[in-house]
Nucleic acid binder design. Structure first.
Lengths: 109, 109
DNA sequence: CGAACATTTCGATAAATATCGAAATGAAAG
DNA sequence: CTTTCATTTCGATATTTATCGAAATGTTCG
């Protein structure tokens, strides 16, 4: 991932409605959700949501597919992972570093 | 982490210079770097950088300490991890989900 | 084909943000 | 205590962004 692309992805997530939409899609899993359902759950006008979904799609964080007359959006998990990896890349100079070495699943809060 | 806080943190990272500064600090590790040195490496005026560092600090992603006449900034690794966890929270409905279960260290590119 | 439906594009306005030089703050050294 | 140095605050400008209604696009069904 290039820094420029990371900024685009982070900007896409750095907004209330877009972050909520993305998290809905992350939780929905690979099946995704139709645009209208997202708009309903977030309680914002379709036109506003469409703008936001386009921005997430442009950043490569979500994808669109058609099902009947609905457009289904789904999260791109690989893109999300790539972004996370970019943030922690070469952490602490690249040597062993207990601050990031702990796998997500075994972390203590 | 609350959604509102996540948006603040993501906004802080969603900018060229701030993302570069943050990554410099991530790579520098717990010792951090003085503000002036960051400004030099990024080749931006001190006043601009100061604005950006303040925003990162407000988001809780970096901390400031004084050393002589320099102000040393360092990344907050726990905050970064909290943000990442928030993004992937309850992924795919909370069930097992191979898309995020792979620990960062063992991922294949 | 024509009506009903889901979503996007357009256009206009309001609000937030990045930028940088100049002046101000605060700490150290002579 | 005055000078020097590192950094921040101020102020002003230009750019980007969020918002939403209305109109347009593309799809299905009768």
């Amino acid at each position: 991932m290039k820094a420029n692309h990371a900024v685009i992805a982070l900007s896409a997530l750095a907004q209330d409605h877009r972050l909520s939409a993305f998290r809905l899609l992350v939780q929905a899993g690979p099946d995704g959700l139709p645009a209208g359902q997202i708009a309903t759950q977030l309680d914002i006008p379709n036109s506003s949501l469409s703008h936001h979904l386009a921005q997430l799609a442009e950043a490569g964080l979500v994808h669109q597919r058609r099902d009947g007359r609905s457009l289904i959006y789904s999260a791109d998990f690989a893109a999300m992972r790539g972004l996370v990896d970019f943030l922690t890349e070469n952490c602490c100079g690249g040597g062993d570093c207990e601050t990031t070495a702990m796998p997500m699943e075994t972390r203590q809060p």
